[in-house]
């Protein structure tokens, strides 16, 4: 890869290329990357239907794996807005269910109330007008305890839920809402937030 003086006569003979060429190439490359991928993404369909009754793994940490089992038909997964093992966005009509798996970094891990407070701040960071109400106890269908409360913002109203895993090494946080969702829409699928399970890995 050493520079070769032998090539110099060629450049001298034909003269240097105009600086507009590399300038145009650089600008075109930037423009292409920031437009082509979002455009291609917008053109691709990105919804996978999720069958009811089958657990959907949503992440693992520590000794446990978390999964979500939909009680109703009609839920679809927005694959473009989801990241395996971290973030999942489901929808059913006007209702949107966003699930985040979080992994606390401290030992001992935070309790449910501290996780609720963290989620309250994260939701406010995402949307300035969003507020979480006071938390109440909730339990999954397996009897695993967590906290739930009302989620309100200028654009939507729904519920938020957090479940720490049994060893506290991760937590599942969910919001169930939708800009166009009515109270009846939300009530019809409200039990989905109780369908989280924690399974001991390898057990």
């Amino acid at each position: 890869m050493a520079e070769t003086a032998a090539e110099e006569p060629r450049a001298r003979r034909r003269g240097p290329r105009s600086d507009w060429v590399p300038l145009g190439a650089a600008a075109a490359a930037v423009a292409l990357l920031v437009t082509a991928w979002p455009l291609l993404n917008a053109l691709l369909p990105g919804s996978d239907s999720v069958s009811s009754g089958s657990p959907v793994p949503v992440g693992s940490a520590g000794a446990y794996e978390a999964s979500l089992t939909f009680p109703q038909e009609g839920w679809v997964l927005d694959t473009g807005a989801s990241q395996a093992g971290r973030t999942y966005r489901f929808s059913r009509g006007p209702v949107e269910l966003t699930l985040n798996k979080v992994t606390p970094v401290t030992d001992p891990p935070p309790d449910a109330l501290e996780l609720w407070e963290g989620m309250r701040r994260l939701i406010r960071a995402g949307e300035a007008s969003a507020r979480l109400g006071e938390p109440e106890a909730i339990a999954t269908r397996d009897g695993h305890e967590g906290l739930t409360g009302i989620l309100e913002s200028r654009t939507q109203r729904g519920a938020a839920v957090v479940y720490p895993s049994p060893d506290g090494r991760m937590a599942v946080e969910m919001t169930l809402a939708g800009r166009d969702a009515t109270t009846a829409d939300l009530a019809a699928v409200a039990d989905v937030v109780r369908s989280v399970s924690f399974t001991r890995e390898g057990g």
Partner: peptide
């Protein structure tokens, strides 16, 4: 911008 677009493309495809 580019990474979000392409990551979504991979996830979908």
């Amino acid at each position: 911008v580019a990474n979000e677009g392409l990551l979504s493309v991979w996830a979908k495809s």
